[in-house]
Structure formats: C-alpha cells, structure tokens
C-alpha cells in the first residue's frame, strides 16, 4: 500500500521533516513580525510623511509590490553579496520575505489610517493630545482592528511564499519533503502531505485571526 509506505517514509524522515516545518515557521514568523513592524512604518510615512518622504516610500512600496517574490528572493541572495552584504541563504530569504511583507502591510495600514474620519484626529487635538499620543491612543487601535482580516491574509501569503526559499537551498518544509521524495519516490503522496501541513499552518493562522478579531471587536 502506497499510503502506508508514504507514512512509513515520513515517519522515518520525521526529524528532518520536523526541522523543515520548524524552519518554515521560523522564516515565516520572523518575516511576518519584521515585515509588519516595517510595514507599520511604511504605512505611517505614506500617510503622514511630507512630499519627499512620501515619494521615496511610494517608490519603495510600488517597486516591491510590483516584483515577483521569487525575483526578490534571488536578488537578495545573489545581488546583495555582489555589493558586499554577505547573507546566508536563510538570512537572505527572510530578508526578501520581510521586504515583501512590509510593502503589503504598508499599503494596508495606509488604507486603514486614511479611512479613519478626520474628526477623530480633531477630537484628539481638541483635548490636547500630541501627534504621537493621537497615533497610539486613537488612530492605531482603530486602524489595527481594521487591518486584521487583510493582515491575516498577507501572513498566509508569506507562509506560502516561504516555499520559494527552497530554490536557494534553504531546507524549509518543502525542500525537506523533496529530499524524502528523492529517496522514497512517493512524490504524489508526499507532496500531498507537504500541502496538507501548509494548509494546517495557514488554517491555524486564519482561525487565530478570526478569534482575535472577535475578541477585539468594538461593541455596538
């Protein structure tokens, strides 16, 4: 039975596969965390920066969003070393995904901030809040609730995009499974297994997102 064989093959390679899953989680987690923080900055500058800053960040964001993630990963791995920045494949991959994530989160944040009625800022000003106080007490709490569903979507995109790191030799989930396939020749079953694990990771992210969404929903 091939399914049984596949299970045996996966079980035999459980440690490398678990390593791969761990790497996928680490890569995605770090890229999402850094990308989100950077993206908050991008969104802020796109919304409140002066003309020069906005132009600069706009080019950054448009360029990154207009480039395939795959190209971005290859560029970070091969081109950065040419200009003297020597990153391991692992680091370069995380770096590329972080940039990708930041540009998308930046746009989401910009949209959310711009959608907040001007009266909110005016009310904050009228009670004497400074810009940063307004940002942290009034604007971000509203914007973050707004971006949550779209942000969850971006997070799952990053998990899926992390498979591309296999091309530059990062042993994440996909590559670790491919290594098992090269020994066991059960490509359909094992690719299905890999796909299922990705699905589980993203399903968990979506469920968590929904849960948080419900938790922080504003009663009305």
């Amino acid at each position: 039975m091939e399914i049984l064989e596949a299970i045996i093959a996966v079980w035999a390679a459980r440690w490398p596969i678990l390593d791969g899953i761990g790497n996928t989680l680490l890569i995605s987690g770090v890229a999402i965390a850094w990308g989100t923080m950077l993206g908050l900055g991008v969104g802020l500058l796109l919304t409140y920066g002066n003309l020069g800053v906005r132009l600069f960040v706009r080019i950054y964001s448009d360029f990154l969003r207009g480039t395939p993630v795959f190209v971005l990963i290859l560029a970070c791995f091969y081109i950065l070393s040419v200009i003297g920045i020597d990153l391991s494949a692992f680091e370069a991959g995380i770096f590329a995904l972080t940039l990708f994530c930041s540009s998308h989160v930046g746009e989401i944040v910009r949209g959310a901030l711009q959608a907040i009625p001007r009266g909110q800022t005016e009310a904050a000003k009228s009670i004497g809040l400074t810009f940063s106080q307004t940002l942290f007490s009034v604007l971000f709490p509203q914007a973050l609730r707004q971006i949550l569903p779209t942000w969850v979507n971006t997070a799952t995109e990053i998990v899926k995009a992390s498979t591309l790191l296999s091309i530059i030799g990062v042993v994440e989930l996909l590559l670790s499974v491919q290594q098992v396939i090269s020994r066991a020749y059960l490509s359909m079953e094992l690719y299905f297994f890999a796909g299922f694990v990705y699905f589980l990771i993203n399903f968990a992210i979506e469920k968590t997102g929904r849960y948080v969404e419900r938790k922080v929903a504003i009663p009305s």
Binding site: P117, E122, A123, A124, S126, I127, V138, Q142, I218, S220
Partner: peptide
C-alpha cells in the same frame, strides 16, 4: 479650550 463637535467624534474603541 474644550470643544464639542457636530458629529460628536467620540473614540469608538
């Protein structure tokens, strides 16, 4: 000064 607005502008969260 304190200000009250036409559309209240309370912080909804």
């Amino acid at each position: 000064t304190g200000m009250a607005f036409q559309h209240f502008n309370l912080f909804p969260h």
